[in-house]
Simulated assay, not measured.
Amino acid sequence: MSAPVLLREGSFLTGRRVLVVEDEYFLADDIARAFRTLGAEIEGPVGEVEDALALLNGLRTVDGAVLDVNLRSASILPVARTLRSRGIPFVFATGYDRSAIDPEFEDVPLWEKPLDIPAMTRGLSGLILQH
């Protein structure tokens, strides 16, 4: 078992890209700001599945992602499957409980809204740094 990753403001994620897929503007902005504080570059935020897929298909690389489970009644699963197929770590952010997540993603960390953004940011950052 590896030691937990302790992160503070700084450059831990310098040169890393984090995709933020969230349709609540203020929450998306708060998430993006938290990752920027750690030095990450942000892709998005985007609030639609099609936009997220277009970003993923147009980018050289993304190092991690935060995915809202339900975007304007559209499932995030196509984005999750794309990330998984590329071996990119991600977390789900949702107002739903674990039962709303497809069983194929039961191993993906789930952060329930209202989000503890610092804890979620640390969690995904740890996955990115271990990757």
Rank of each mutant, 00 (worst) to 15 (best):
M1D: 06
A3L: 15
P4T: 08
L6E: 01
L6N: 01
L7E: 00
G10A: 09
G10Y: 09
S11Y: 00
G15I: 04
R16V: 00
R17T: 00
R17F: 00
L19H: 03
L19K: 11
E24I: 12
E24S: 09
E24N: 11
Y25E: 13
F26R: 11
D29P: 00
I31E: 01
A32M: 09
A32T: 00
R33L: 15
R33S: 15
R33I: 10
A34K: 10
F35G: 03
R36W: 00
P45V: 02
V46E: 02
V46C: 12
V46T: 11
G47E: 05
E48P: 00
V49A: 10
V49I: 13
E50C: 00
E50R: 09
D51E: 14
A54W: 02
G58F: 09
L59I: 08
V62D: 01
V62I: 12
D63Q: 05
D63L: 11
V66S: 14
V66Q: 08
D68I: 04
D68Q: 07
V69H: 15
S73V: 05
A74E: 15
S75W: 10
S75K: 15
R86V: 03
F90W: 04
F90P: 01
V91W: 07
F92G: 06
T94L: 14
G95D: 04
Y96N: 14
D97I: 08
D97K: 12
S99Y: 08
D102V: 14
P103A: 13
E104C: 06
E104A: 15
F105K: 14
E106I: 07
E106G: 12
L110R: 03
W111A: 11
E112M: 15
K113H: 06
K113Q: 06
K113V: 04
P114I: 02
L115I: 01
D116I: 05
D116P: 05
D116T: 06
M120Y: 07
G123H: 08
L124M: 11
G126T: 06
L129Q: 10
L129V: 10
